[in-house]
């Protein structure tokens, strides 16, 4: 995990003539992007962000200088902003950063069956999408289905739940419940 960089945002178009820029934050709470200290871009630069409005920020370089004018801001458009993984706060027990989960090897009955491709959450609990050869498998992220998450070992252990298919009967088109 050490040394890993996480994409946290991207610099957008300039705002005004005083060197301000639109910043698209990918953080769970967008305003938190400014709280992570120095943001590194993909060309080796370091920037400190201060919000000056809704989605509008002032970027200060590692030399302490802010962007002087619109041209300087224009030069940074589409620059990706990263944070080192070590700077993120420790998650609660049984909470995991998606960036840590994605890519872990998936073990089932002692054999590696694939990798975690994505973590979904559409309001009904998290689920792991696991690449299994050319197919993918989606499992609920619960203690029953994912009993072990070993970050140090880079692996998760899964137990597939039983699957019951419920197909509609032809004469049973629906009913109102009491």
């Amino acid at each position: 995990m050490s040394g890993q960089r996480i994409l946290m945002g991207v610099v957008g178009r300039p705002h005004g003539v005083r060197g301000l820029v639109h910043v698209h934050s990918y953080a769970a709470v967008p305003a938190d992007l400014a709280s992570y200290g120095t943001l590194h871009d993909d060309r080796g630069g370091g920037w400190t962000l201060t919000w000056r409005g809704q989605g509008i920020g002032e970027l200060r370089g590692t030399d302490g200088q802010v962007l002087r004018d619109r041209e300087a801001a224009q030069a940074l458009v589409n620059r990706k902003l990263y944070v080192e993984r070590d700077r993120l706060p420790e998650p609660e027990p049984d909470e995991f950063y998606l960036a840590d989960l994605i890519g872990l090897a998936v073990h089932e009955n002692g054999a590696v069956i694939g990798n975690v491709l994505a973590v979904h959450d559409y309001g009904a609990g998290s689920s792991l999408e696991i690449g299994e050869g050319s197919r993918s498998l989606v499992l609920p992220f619960t203690r029953a289905c994912v009993p072990e998450v070993d970050m140090a070992g880079g692996r998760v252990v899964i137990v597939r739940p039983e699957e019951i298919e419920v197909r509609p009967d032809e004469d049973d088109v629906g009913e109102a419940a009491e």
Partner: peptide, 18 residues
């Protein structure tokens, strides 16, 4: 169970094991 998927960026987002 959305039919169109936007995965977004993982950034500092967390998943809780249920």
């Amino acid at each position: 169970s959305p039919t169109r998927t936007f995965t977004g960026h993982s950034s500092d987002k967390k998943a809780k094991r249920g």
